[in-house]
Design a binder for these strands. Structure first.
Lengths: 226, 226
DNA sequence: AAGAAAACTGGACCGCGGTCCGTTTGGGGT
DNA sequence: ACCCCAAACGGACCGCGGTCCAGTTTTCTT
């Protein structure tokens, strides 16, 4: 039930496994999107698979995480991996899930300046910085988990970030098209961009951080447009 | 329409085919990077391949453009396709090449407000709008041509756009980190984002256009940061 | 004009992501 | 305790992107 409530894309308990969870309108993706009741063996296999995947990453890097390899390492059939996670992206995303939930919890109910209690502008600044560093920490995985362009923004976790951003923006610049602005701001924190700037162009994280703060400052100036 | 057939992005006579052309430092990617000399048969096959690819797109959409299918449709071996274009992305990019050069010519030496002659801010505004509509026109192809995340920003054409943006920005907000700012602004024009906003969230192009203008206005305000 | 080096060609081959479907299994109902 | 079927399983199978290399064609040299 936890999920039934939220999902819009009515999938009956059917062969098509992944619930991509269209929902860009809900705030939490928390414990909800979990499979509510998973048969004992299924749950066991799921755990095995995640563990195997993590091990493979540790040993051979993200590139070594092949669906077949994961299946083999978990002593499970290939079909099972796909049934459970939908596709490679789904598996990789699942690996990021914990950290994603953590971040979400932090800005939804954690301590200031990220969580409620600080003024919106403060939270906005902290938000970007937090995302920035989290992304940098898991760059390889984040990059590999990025779905093909068509689905990049449908991703529920991204939706949650965007929603939070939008809410903050509305408090700061109520006159603007906050929805659009949120997209833009998030785009500037895209893992691929961060990868390019830090690894391919050698910018230090401090510069990106300063860039975010500057961007936020510019975007949120409240004096009338020229 | 014989799109552009013969031109551009090809590779020096090297064993490893694709020269991704690191060059973020040069302004034009124009006739320079042209194949210096392409053997007669190679040139003929290149043209055939592009034509075949275009026909396939027209008939079956971008998804129908399979490397094997293109090769077959052009009466050419599969290996030849890869030798010429490096990979699928390369082929698709080549199809976009003509339009890319056109755009570049427009803002480098075309008439105002896009080209030189207008004040920088005017040009910046026009630039975004131009990119926006060009992208929207070729959305499917643009999306399909997008390389994997790691290489997304290494793409030379994107580099040229960014460079131009940077130059404009330096004239408008000399105090800022224009390089970074250019990346951010460009990110807000990403094909995947445009796709998401217009096709998945149903925003009209006018709203995106307004969003760009507003973003530019906000970002280029020159009064001191708070 | 001839011969050799360089460039190009084509298709067999590989690995991986993803699908399909016949088989097995867990666990709720009786 | 047993039955039953939805759910889960596993591995054969497919298509596509990408590589490789033996053989062919073009162009350069003298």
């Amino acid at each position: 039930m936890l999920y039934a409530v939220v999902m819009s894309s009515a999938l009956p308990p059917l062969p098509k496994p992944q619930e991509p969870l269209e929902s860009s309108h809900l705030l939490e993706i928390g414990p909800a999107s979990d499979e509510p009741c998973l048969r004992a063996d299924a749950a066991r296999n799921r755990a095995r698979l995640l563990e195997a995947a993590a091990r493979l990453i540790a040993e051979h890097g993200v590139a070594g995480v092949t669906m077949e390899a994961v299946a083999a390492a978990a002593n499970v059939g290939k079909g099972t991996v796909f049934r459970r996670f939908g596709d490679r992206t789904g598996l990789l995303t699942a690996l990021l899930d914990h950290s994603a939930k953590q971040l979400q919890a932090d800005f939804l109910s954690g301590p200031p300046p990220l969580g409620p209690g600080s003024p919106p502008l403060e939270r906005l600044r902290a938000f970007g910085v937090a995302v920035l560093y989290r992304t940098a920490e898991q760059l390889d995985l984040q990059l590999a988990a990025q779905p093909e362009p068509t689905r990049r923004f449908a991703h529920p976790a991204a939706g949650s970030l965007r929603m939070h951003l939008t809410v903050l923006l509305r408090q700061i610049v109520p006159g603007a098209d906050c929805d659009l602005l949120a997209h833009t701001l998030l785009a500037s924190l895209d893992p691929a961009l961060i990868h390019h700037l830090t690894r391919q162009r050698g910018m230090p994280m401090e510069r990106l951080e300063a860039g975010w703060l500057d961007l936020v400052a510019r975007v949120t100036r409240t004096d009338p447009p020229r």
